[in-house]
Design a protein around this nucleic acid. Structure first.
Length: 760
DNA sequence: CCTGTGCCTGTTTTT
DNA sequence: CAGGCACAGG
């Protein structure tokens, strides 16, 4: 397409962004303002007007989904085929991995290195903790790892940490960090953070590498800029050309990865970091109706950390945003499904989505949709590649590709069970250490310290691997995978007709299919495994006509005709773990905003007054976000009872969410007060609505030292932690401890008399 | 050395 | 409710 044609059909601000010349450019792209359009057109326009050769363009995104879309759309504009004439369009991690695979030695990596996922990371850290004799409760592996990750992403060194001699815990983390780094080096493995950090290392240690990468990044484009962290920012700065041709596209209102190190300052202070930067704001929204924009705009206006922009639409009219407050999560799902079925006549199922804060929330929706035989798909969630049987199969493949892969070896040397247990593995490890070689290589010596039985078993295992090596030469990749699944005995593990086994066999079959597809696209096994490590989904076009269920995080960048944001309850959205500081709360608000702005025509917000949490039925409270939306912008579809209740539960109550909160039964006078001062299972308890737990025994009341009765489900308030709900009671009398889930502070265990707990 | 059972605890979001 | 983990028995 010619350069002029590319500007046609764009609005003035879009055109300005697309046609802008050299130097830093920040495009503030509100939700639905044509961000991808601008990005892809800019890529095409750079080439079309002769400013750039395709291979001088590097465009990075955060998700594979976004990368794929950008690639496809750009390809259709520049008619250079799917290869984009050599332009790089992909995720940060793919970009990094390409560099590391090409120049591993510049980054200090072995020629063949492997990538470890978060499970592997955890496994390594657990071992290190054991080794150090540390209490895993005091130093949870995941926690330690996320702290390390935070340091890496903030460009902080171990040395800096070690200087913090005032804090023993920090010292411990520093030591663990060192050991973790050393362990990865031994294994020839890199984690996600390493990928980016090591590219930085390669760029600074090797001028030739730096020159090559920089040449290809002469025009640098960055999507979702609001989610970049310090490390990524440094990386961008390092490869940036002298003319500073960076195009950053983003929206601070959609920054949702603070927990992963995202620095909103990168977008808020862009002009400061890149002097002379040109800023274009895209505020015209093409996606949503006016009511949807009004509601989402009202919500996000409560945030303080923003540059501030106001989206507008030229579209008139539109369905009002609906609100539905259900008695429980089953009813919530039922209502949503009613709506979905009603909308089905005018919208394809693929254009509808139910969005929620946590993955666990999909359950009732899946059940309800299944019952009604409405096709759905869960996006993200328990990932295909993360399933145990798939990871086992991948471990075999990794061993074939990289025989020295110790992690893969240890994972499957005894899968299926061959009589190689912990004792044998330990012996192999010490032997490996003695000869100074990786475990899987050293294990070939079949050391005599092993029991005869283990020696034989190990021999058989290596026979399989050896044969695999020969088979691989003669077979097509997919056939080879099929053969390996059979020969390894993995498939045999799931013989039988039980549901679970059938599913697992099916998953393994799908893996083989994925390999076949990859090889059709010219990928060999190595490339396939890399793609898997980066979570690149093999299912290219999930155009299936099915309702989408997914988290708010996964929904970013997508759009649907109809969107349901479910679980608008305090502690869930905003999530209890993110309410400790104002920053966390603002991010939750952005998350809700992202969800709402996915909708084109219809948006509904739903909540449940009771919900299963920690295996118990608990009374919930409304999301404070509901109170931040003008009531006249919402159409309350709750049933008559819920509407009365909703007045206090849903809207007014949310407004006073900071203060002490009474349970809904009391406020409305529809239920009886909950066991105030009364002890034992009196009649009042079984009559109040939230007590009637579906077919489950009603928890007994337990007295504290003052004779006050407590039991699971009671709402309580605490001076510091605010309000919450009792999960369980331990002991009685003076020794009574209550496990409480606080809406804001999360889970705590308290002695009621000491903590001065109050009811309500 | 493997497997099964029962207890316990923890539950956010993802490249 | 679920997954992880420790322990006991085969």
């Amino acid at each position: 397409m010619t350069a002029e044609r590319l500007l046609e059909g764009l609005n003035p601000t879009q055109r300005e962004a697309v046609a802008y010349g050299e130097g830093p450019l920040l495009v503030l792209a509100g939700a639905g303002s044509g961000k991808t359009r601008v990005l892809t057109h800019r890529v095409a326009h750079l080439i079309g007007r002769g400013a750039a050769e395709p291979f001088e363009i590097t465009a990075v995104t955060f998700t594979n989904k976004a990368a794929r879309e950008m690639r496809e759309r750009a390809a259709s504009l520049i008619d250079a085929g799917p290869g984009l004439g050599g332009a790089f369009v992909g995720t940060f991690h793919r970009w990094a991995l390409d560099i590391l695979r090409r120049w591993p030695e510049a980054a200090g990596l072995p020629r063949r290195f492997s990538i470890i996922d978060s499970d592997d990371q955890r496994g390594l850290m657990v071992k290190i903790l054991k080794d150090e004799g540390l209490d895993p409760k005091e130093y949870p592996a995941r926690n330690v790892l996320s702290r390390i990750s935070g340091h890496v992403n903030r460009l902080e060194s171990v040395k800096k940490l070690e200087r913090r001699t005032d804090d023993i815990r920090i010292q411990v983390v520093a030591r663990l960090w060192r050991r973790y780094t050393a362990r990865k080096k031994e294994l020839g493995a890199v984690d996600f953070d390493d990928m980016l950090a090591l590219v930085l290392k390669a760029l600074s240690s090797d001028q030739a590498v730096a020159a090559s990468v920089k040449r290809r990044a002469r025009w640098l484009l960055v999507d979702e800029f609001q989610d970049t962290n310090k490390l990524q920012m440094k990386l961008l700065n390092t490869v940036l050309s002298e003319t500073g041709n960076i195009t950053a596209v983003g929206d601070e209102d959609q920054s949702i990865y603070r927990w992963r190190g995202a620095e909103m300052d990168n977008i808020l202070d862009f002009e400061h970091s890149f002097p002379g930067a040109h800023v274009v704001a895209l505020e015209r929204n093409y996606r949503s109706t006016a009511p949807i924009l009004r509601v989402s705009g009202a919500l996000i206006a409560s945030n303080t950390r923003r540059r501030g922009k106001k989206l507008f639409t030229e579209k008139d009219g539109g369905e009002p945003v609906h609100l539905f407050i259900a008695p429980g999560e089953r009813e919530e799902a039922r209502w949503v499904c009613d709506r979905i079925e009603a909308l089905q006549t005018s919208h394809p199922l693929g254009e509808m989505a139910v969005l929620m804060r946590t993955n666990a929330q999909t359950r009732p929706f899946e059940e309800e949709l299944t019952r009604r035989q409405v096709p759905y798909r869960v996006v993200g969630g328990l990932r295909f590649w993360q399933r145990a049987e798939v990871k086992d199969a991948l471990a075999y493949l990794r061993l074939v590709v990289r025989p020295e892969d110790a992690l893969a070896f240890e994972r499957v040397v005894n899968v299926p069970a061959r009589g190689i247990g912990a004792v044998t593995i330990d012996a192999l490890r010490s032997h490996a250490e003695a000869v100074g070689r990786p475990v899987p290589i050293a294990a070939r010596d079949t050391p005599e310290t092993l029991t005869p039985r283990a020696q034989v078993a190990l021999g058989r295992f290596f026979e399989i691997l050896d044969e695999a090596e020969t088979q691989r030469e003669t077979m097509a990749p997919a056939d080879f995978v099929g053969w390996l699944l059979e020969a390894s005995g993995l498939l045999g593990l799931y013989d039988g007709e039980e549901e679970e086994k059938v599913v697992r066999r099916e998953n393994l079959r799908q893996l083989a299919t994925a390999v076949a597809e990859a090889s059709l696209q010219g990928q060999d096994l190595e490339a396939f495994l890399d793609g898997v490590a980066l979570f690149e989904d093999s299912d290219q076009k999930t155009s299936a006509d099915a309702v989408s269920l997914m988290t708010l995080h996964s929904a970013k960048g997508l759009e649907f005709d109809a969107v349901f944001v479910a679980g608008c309850e305090d502690g869930l959205l905003p999530h209890a773990n993110s309410q400790k500081d104002a920053e966390g709360l603002e991010e939750e608000r952005r998350l809700a905003y992202v969800g709402m702005t996915r909708a084109r025509h219809r948006l509904a917000l739903t909540a449940a007054r009771e919900r299963f949490l920690f295996g118990q039925r608990l009374t919930t409270r409304p999301s404070r976000f509901l109170a931040e939306i003008p009531a006249d912008s919402l159409q309350d579809d709750s049933d008559a009872f819920s509407q009365i209740v909703g007045q206090s539960w849903g809207l007014e109550a949310a407004a006073m969410v900071q203060g002490p909160q009474r349970s809904f039964g009391r406020q409305t006078g529809l239920g009886r007060p909950q066991s105030t001062g009364s002890v034992g299972a009196g009649p009042s308890q079984s009559r109040s609505p939230q007590r009637s737990v579906r077919g489950r025994p009603i928890a007994a009341t337990v007295e504290d030292a003052d004779g006050k009765g407590w039991r699971p489900g009671d709402r309580v308030s605490h001076q510091r932690f605010g309000s919450g709900v009792v999960l369980s009671c331990q002991g009685r009398g003076p020794g009574l401890k209550l496990v409480i889930y606080f809406d804001r502070a999360g889970r705590k265990t308290l002695v009621p008399t000491i903590a001065k707990l109050e009811k309500g």
